[in-house]
Amino acid sequence: MKTGRVNLASVNLNLLVALKALLDEGNVTRAASRLNITQSGMSKNLRNLRELFDDPLLVRSGNNFALTERAIELNQDLERILGEVTELLDRSSFEPAECDRTFTFATSDYVAEYIFPKVLENYLKVAPNISIRLEIADSSTISKLSNGSYDLITSMLDSQYQGLHHLVIGRDQFACCMRKNHPLMLRGGGISLNEYCTLDHAIITGGGDKVQVIDAELAKIGQRRTIRFAAPLFTTVCKVVSGSDMIATMPSHIASNLAPEFGLSWCALPFYVESFDYTIAWHERHHHDASHIWFRNTMQQLVQASLYSYMAQESTSNVLCVL
Rank of each mutant, 00 (worst) to 15 (best):
G4N: 10
A9I: 00
N12V: 03
K20P: 01
A21C: 11
L23K: 07
G26R: 15
N27Y: 11
S33V: 15
S33Y: 07
N36Q: 12
Q39L: 00
S40A: 13
K44W: 08
K44R: 14
K44S: 13
K44I: 13
N48A: 12
R50G: 13
D54T: 07
D55H: 01
D55E: 09
P56K: 05
V59A: 07
E69D: 13
R70P: 01
A71Q: 04
E73C: 00
E79I: 13
I81T: 13
E87R: 11
R91E: 14
F94P: 02
F94R: 06
A97K: 12
E98I: 01
T102G: 01
Y110N: 07
V111P: 03
A112W: 02
A112V: 10
E113S: 15
E113R: 15
E113Y: 12
Y114K: 14
K118L: 09
K118G: 03
L120F: 01
L124A: 00
V126Y: 01
N129M: 03
S131G: 01
R133F: 00
T141A: 13
N147A: 02
G148E: 07
S149T: 14
L152M: 14
I153W: 07
I153A: 10
M156T: 13
M156Y: 05
Q160D: 08
Y161V: 14
G163S: 11
L164M: 15
G170I: 00
R171K: 07
F174T: 03
A175K: 05
A175H: 04
C176I: 13
C177Q: 04
M178C: 06
N181Y: 06
P183F: 05
P183M: 08
L184H: 03
L186F: 01
L186V: 04
G188V: 01
Y196E: 03
C197P: 08
T198C: 07
H201F: 09
H201R: 06
A202N: 00
I203P: 00
T205E: 04
G208E: 12
D209M: 05
V211M: 09
V211N: 07
A216H: 10
L218A: 06
G222F: 11
I227L: 08
F229D: 01
F229S: 02
A230W: 00
P232K: 11
P232C: 10
P232E: 04
F234W: 08
K239W: 00
V240F: 02
S242W: 03
D245F: 09
M246V: 06
A248T: 09
T249P: 03
T249N: 12
S252L: 12
I254D: 09
I254V: 15
A255C: 15
A255Q: 07
L258W: 04
A259T: 09
A259M: 07
F262Q: 05
G263Y: 08
S265E: 02
W266S: 11
C267Y: 02
P270T: 04
F271K: 05
F276E: 03
W282S: 10
H286K: 12
H287L: 01
H288R: 06
H292T: 05
Q300D: 04
Q300S: 11
L302M: 11
S306T: 06
S309T: 06
Q313N: 12
T316D: 03
N318T: 10
V319P: 00
C321P: 00
